[in-house]
Simulated scan of single mutants.
Amino acid sequence: MNPLRRELAYFFGAVRFFTRLPVPAWVCHSPEALNHSARYFPLVGLVVGLIGALTFAFASFFFPKTLAVLLAMAATLLVTGAFHEDGWADMVDGFGGGWTRERTLEIMKDSSIGSYGTIALVLMLLGKFMALVELDMLLVAPALIAGHALSRLCATGLLRFLDYAREEGKAKPLATRLSRGELALAAVFGLVALALLPPAGALAGLVFAVAATAFLARKFARRLGGYTGDCLGATQQLAELAFYFGLLCRFS
């Protein structure tokens, strides 16, 4: 396979794993390919954010800002199948109800959602909705693009700095740590959309997202000794929310 086709296969592999978007039939699935596709997770975020941004722009011609934001969020949820939101809810359930590493992992593996996860999911969706509504009309679309890309870069960072906490699982093929070059490429895709936003706001959003990621990474390392697939999803969600909060910070 030539280098360009191989990199395209890695990108489409990331698209298939993290979204419900169709990919070419020639793209094969393998644990090794999925591991190499990690460098393209933020690029997938750019695609998801762009879909949300286009939905918002189109809906704004017909509906008030609040409904346009709601439809944009719904579009991203539809594209991803609420993949990361599910991870957020499972993580909060596990950390809220588990007092030991083993019990926490057991709860997180359970497909049902508990009270902790339900409350956390409602607050997460409400928080993102309220934050996007509070943004200037012209900033909502670029914020969606940058937020989805940057937050996936934050989650990708865990693959570089933490170990995988389970012996098996959906995210096990991702457990090989990213090289510096792969992380650098991911950073390009994750940071490029910040240029669409005012510098002060983009910097504040970046700081907030990194702080949220560091907070969760510390908790994952202390409680689990590493990350799981749910931890990656939870990191993406909290980093995205934190980014929007940073854009709204009075000091940005």
Rank of each mutant, 00 (worst) to 15 (best):
L178K: 01
T55H: 11
G98K: 10
R152G: 03
M130R: 13
V69I: 02
F12T: 03
A221C: 08
F215N: 07
R152H: 01
L224G: 00
M73Q: 10
L8W: 13
V133E: 03
G49S: 04
V140E: 04
T235Y: 09
L77I: 06
S179W: 12
A212Y: 15
P173I: 01
E182R: 13
L54V: 15
E7I: 07
L185Q: 10
E106T: 05
F61L: 12
F251K: 11
A25G: 05
V47C: 10
V69S: 05
G127Y: 12
E134V: 00
A82P: 11
K172R: 14
A221W: 12
L70N: 06
A59M: 13
Y227L: 00
C249G: 00
G226F: 11
A239R: 02
L247H: 07
V44T: 05
H29L: 03
A200G: 12
A143M: 06
T104W: 15
K219Q: 10
G169W: 14
T118Q: 07
R16E: 12
L71F: 14
L178H: 00
Y116L: 08
A33Y: 08
R222W: 04
G201M: 15
H148R: 08
E182Q: 15
R152V: 03
L248T: 15
T176I: 05
N2D: 14
R6H: 07
V188N: 03
G94A: 10
A221D: 14
L4G: 00
V92I: 11
T118K: 04
L158K: 11
G45M: 01
A149G: 02
F129M: 11
L216Q: 02
L125W: 00
G94E: 12
P42Q: 03
L71S: 14
L191Y: 10
A9W: 09
D136E: 15
V188E: 04
A234T: 04
V48C: 10
P24A: 02
A59S: 15
R6L: 04
A155G: 07
A242K: 10
L196P: 08
G117P: 11
L159R: 08
K65A: 04
L54H: 00
L216K: 01
P3F: 09
G98V: 08
F62W: 15
L194S: 11
A68L: 02
R166T: 05
G13E: 13
T176G: 09
G181H: 01
A9H: 10
G190I: 05
G190L: 08
A33I: 02
W26M: 02
L224T: 04
D230P: 10
R223F: 11
L67N: 06
P3R: 14
A9N: 09
T76K: 01
A193T: 08
P142R: 04
P142G: 07
F95W: 14
G49W: 00
L135M: 08
H148K: 00
G49E: 01
A33L: 13
R39M: 13
E102C: 06
G97A: 13
A195I: 15
F243V: 02
L247R: 03
I113Q: 05
